[in-house]
Design a protein around this nucleic acid. Structure first.
Length: 851
DNA sequence: ATAGGGTTAG
């Protein structure tokens, strides 16, 4: 204040002549500003008038003494304060303008203002949502050289903060809030002080607006780091596209590559489940001749851990470029082995790391041991898992909840419920607090070994009294017997008798137990076929504030299906949609299983179609579940459905591995010759061809059977062996037979194409002969034969008369050995429609009785 | 700044 007066006195300010009026009281509730009005020049009251008045407010009068100067200035400061108290910031701005134009330094004027009054005004404006006009005023104030922030007291800042959050909450365009922040920053506010960076970023991420996020981040000196955390946020939302947009901006750090950005985007690829993208980013890094650091390598290996080959390859590259593996690298390699189920390799790595440890370079940590235990747990090698635990304790590493969980699951996976419970107890005695995940494993172990009651006893005990030491079996069972003896009064008895029993055991520690959706799902499994109990558990789950997920619903469907209730199971599927829970492959597969088990193929196939409509990809289990219903397929339509599934399966990249399907097609085809035992036997004896040929064969059959509406029938037997060709031909004939009811005649000739004799392998020789024999002798069809050039002009003709089969069998009609420049020659057979119709009209079986 | 554990269908 003293400074202000001094400065004021020394300045050549022109002051108003009149003596200073009494400053208005600083009571914000007073009506002081109205009282002051008469003292104001007219221009104060109306903005339009003041705007065209170019003369500064204070210049019309002469000021003389410093004290007068001070008083005058104080008067205007009070005036300005009171005007802003009234929310009249435009007038405030005007006074400030005039004062500054008169040569008063803004900082001097500012110190004379009554900030409490200004604050009240600011807060009123903000509470009325007039942030934008307030900003307009303060832009002007800033232009005058004021420090806007200093006009805000704590309360005003708090109000501004509150208004920013309010706008953030209802903001539709992320960029809107970002530019508001920028404006406030220009006014001198600290963005971070107003709104937490994470709130703004969350909005940008929710709105999938990487550009807004980038612009926001660039307001900070440490933009690079911020951009990386934004990438991770996008990654958590599985929005790789936006994350990549941010990456493009953040990868260059003033000319040098930002390795942190690279490793971050690799991690994000992992979060988004696109490990191939992480590989291409790594390639890009190499192509730019940048040297990846250990973090990039570790992240890359981690993201690709499910592909052990690739992970090892990266590990080798890392060694080659001289980046030393650290403990994380080894732990990730172990994880990769774990995912690949490679116990052998994991053991080698474990031993190698232990060797390195003995040299004093690094020290195995709880991750190493826990991962190794998990490897062994998955391989059901529980004894070795316990051995690792010993190693760990000897090394002085304390097992944590994850270690214990893995150990318990080692026993659980081996079906050793007692051992699992013992380890659980040991964990409690070690003072390690169990979490729900760990409890779930124990419950699941009970369910897996059909100890349903035990699972429920543990659960109820935990729920009633928390998780306590020493209650593993005996005491717990006694308590639960009381509970179970009187199910109607379960709740009351728990409250009174059982709690007191347990209390008297004086166990010091009781850990809290909070069941999760998983817990309830496991217990629902423990309901066996009691769907009322399962449904009750689902209701209980909701009462606990948990939401049933797709697994809960799938289990419910399974339980209904177990009772043979197809309609009920389908109804649950509908309810699931109504509850807003998306079914997954397993849900549909379960429902399909229910239908198949109840021999309701119509529903099974319609569910299959439905899941594909919803873009839920069937997997191997789905296909096998559908194909398992093989004995049901009798009609052509059913076989076609079955083959369609088979083809679908191959298109989806699944190797067909279905013994039933092969048998089905074989039997179905041979059914046309069902009275001919010799032929049937022949098929069976030849069914052991190589898998590739069987695939090809089934494919051929499927193609022909699907092409049922084709105008002209052509059977392409190229590339098939005798037996395969036979099945294809029989399949097509059966198809024709089933498609043509009595009186319905075949409209076209049937064409059969064989491979060029010249290119026939030894294995495939004699196909044509075998087929002719089948058609003529076994089925009594008339067969025409011709060699046919592949050229278009030869399409029309060239078929010979019926020929004696003996000649055919001896290969007399074969074309001469291929000269080099001869065009490719296809061997063709033709069966005229008349012959086919004649064959169709034959009574009973459609086969000739030759034997 | 890096890494680990649980529940559903055949």
């Amino acid at each position: 204040m003293r400074d202000a007066v001094a400065i004021l006195a020394s300045s050549s300010v022109v002051l108003p002549p009149n003596p200073t009026p009494t400053p208005p009281p600083h009571n914000p509730h007073s009506q002081s500003s109205t009282k002051l009005k008469p003292l104001l020049p007219r221009s104060f009251t109306r903005r339009t008038q003041s705007a065209d008045s170019n003369s500064p407010l204070l210049s019309t009068v002469r000021w003389d003494s410093p004290s007068q100067v001070r008083n005058r200035l104080k008067y205007y400061a009070d005036l300005a304060s009171n005007l802003s108290d009234d929310g009249r910031f435009t007038d405030f701005l005007m006074i400030a303008e005039s004062v500054v134009v008169s040569g008063v330094k803004p900082s001097v004027f500012a110190t004379l203002l009554n900030l409490k009054l200004v604050s009240v005004g600011i807060r009123r404006m903000l509470s009325e949502g007039k942030l934008v006009s307030l900003i307009q005023v303060f832009k002007g104030v800033k232009k005058l050289g004021f420090s806007v922030v200093e006009l805000f007291d704590e309360l005003a800042i708090e109000a501004l903060r509150h208004e920013c959050h309010r706008r953030l909450a209802k903001c539709d365009e992320a960029l809107e809030i970002v530019s508001l922040m920028e404006t406030l920053q220009e006014l001198g506010f600290s963005i971070k002080g107003l709104v937490d960076a994470s709130h703004i970023i969350r909005l940008c991420v929710n709105k999938r607006d990487p550009d807004a996020a980038i612009r926001y981040a660039q307001n900070f000196p440490q933009a690079g780091m911020l951009l990386c955390s934004i990438m991770i946020e996008f990654g958590k939302r599985r929005d790789l596209v936006s994350a990549l947009t941010v990456f493009e901006v953040s990868k260059q750090n003033q000319g040098c590559p930002n390795m942190y950005a690279y490793r971050t985007i690799v991690d994000v690829c992992g979060l988004c489940g696109d490990c191939l993208k992480s590989r291409s980013i790594y390639e890009e890094l190499l192509a730019c001749k940048f040297a990846p650091n250990i973090y990039v390598f570790n992240s890359l290996m981690n993201v690709n851990a499910s592909d052990l080959t690739y992970t090892l390859q990266i590990y080798k590259q890392m060694q080659k470029v001289g980046v030393t593996a650290d403990l994380a690298s080894y732990n990730i390699l172990l994880k990769s082995c774990c995912l690949a189920g490679r116990v052998d390799l994991a053991k080698d790595i474990y031993n190698e790391v232990r060797k390195i440890e003995s040299m004093g370079v690094l020290k195995l940590d709880v991750f190493t041991y826990s991962t190794m235990i998990k490897v062994l747990a998955d391989a059901r090698m529980w004894q070795m898992a316990l051995k690792i635990k010993e190693d760990m304790l000897l090394a002085g590493v304390i097992p944590n909840i994850v270690t214990w969980t893995s150990l318990i699951s080692a026993c659980a996976n081996a079906g050793l419920v007692e051992q699992a419970i013992q380890l659980f107890e040991e964990m409690l005695w070690a003072g390690c607090e169990p979490n729900s995940q760990c409890c779930n494993i124990l419950l699941h172990a009970c369910v897996e070994s059909c100890q349903y009651d035990r699972a429920f006893r543990l659960f109820k005990g935990w729920k009633a009294n928390g998780i306590q030491k020493g209650i593993s079996v005996d005491i717990h069972c006694k308590t639960e017997n009381i509970l179970c003896a009187n199910p109607n009064h379960e709740r009351d008895s728990r409250k009174s008798s059982s709690t007191s029993i347990l209390k008297h055991q004086s166990f010091p520690v009781s850990f809290p137990f909070s069941p999760t959706t998983s817990t309830y799902n496991i217990l629902m499994k423990a309901c066996g076929t009691d769907y009322f109990r399962a449904k009750a558990l689902m209701d209980e789950m909701k009462m606990e504030g948990l939401s049933p997920n797709h697994i809960s619903w799938s289990i419910l469907i399974d339980i209904f299906g177990g009772k043979g209730n197809v309609e009920g199971a389908l109804q649950i599927l509908r309810s699931m949609y109504q509850a807003g829970v998306q079914p997954d492959v397993v849900t549909y597969t379960t429902a399909i299983k229910v239908c198949v088990e109840q021999k309701n193929l119509k529903f099974a196939f319609s569910l299959f179609a439905e899941m594909k409509r919803y873009q839920i990809k069937p997997n191997m289990v789905t296909y096998n579940t559908l194909l398992r219903a093989r004995s049901q397929y009798g009609s052509l339509q059913e076989v076609q459905q079955c083959l369609a599934i088979y083809q679908d399966m191959r298109k989806a990249g699944y190797k067909h591995n279905d013994y039933y399907l092969k048998q089905l097609i074989g039997e179905w085809c041979e059914g046309i010759l069902q009275n001919n035992n010799r032929n049937k036997g022949q098929f069976v004896s030849h069914s052991g061809t190589s898998p590739e040929l069987q695939n090809l064969l089934l494919e051929k059959v499927a193609v022909h059977l699907q092409d049922i509406n084709a105008e002209s029938l052509t059977i392409d037997l190229q590339g098939l062996s005798k037996i395969e060709a036979r099945i294809v031909v029989l399949a097509v004939l059966r198809m024709i037979k089933e498609q043509h009811s009595p009186g319905d005649s075949v409209k076209d000739d049937l064409m059969i194409i064989f491979e060029d004799v010249g290119s026939q392998t030894r294995h495939k020789g004699g196909v044509k002969e075998a087929i002719v024999k089948l058609l003529q002798y076994d089925l009594g069809l008339e067969v025409l034969s011709a060699g046919l050039r592949v050229k278009k002009d030869s399409e029309s003709g060239g078929f010979e008369n019926p020929f004696p089969s003996k000649d055919v069998l001896q290969g007399r009609d074969l074309p001469p050995k291929s000269p080099a420049r001869r065009p490719a020659v296809l061997q063709r057979l033709k069966i005229k429609k008349a012959s086919l119709n004649h064959w169709l009209q034959r009574k009973g079986g459609s086969f000739a009785t030759t034997s």
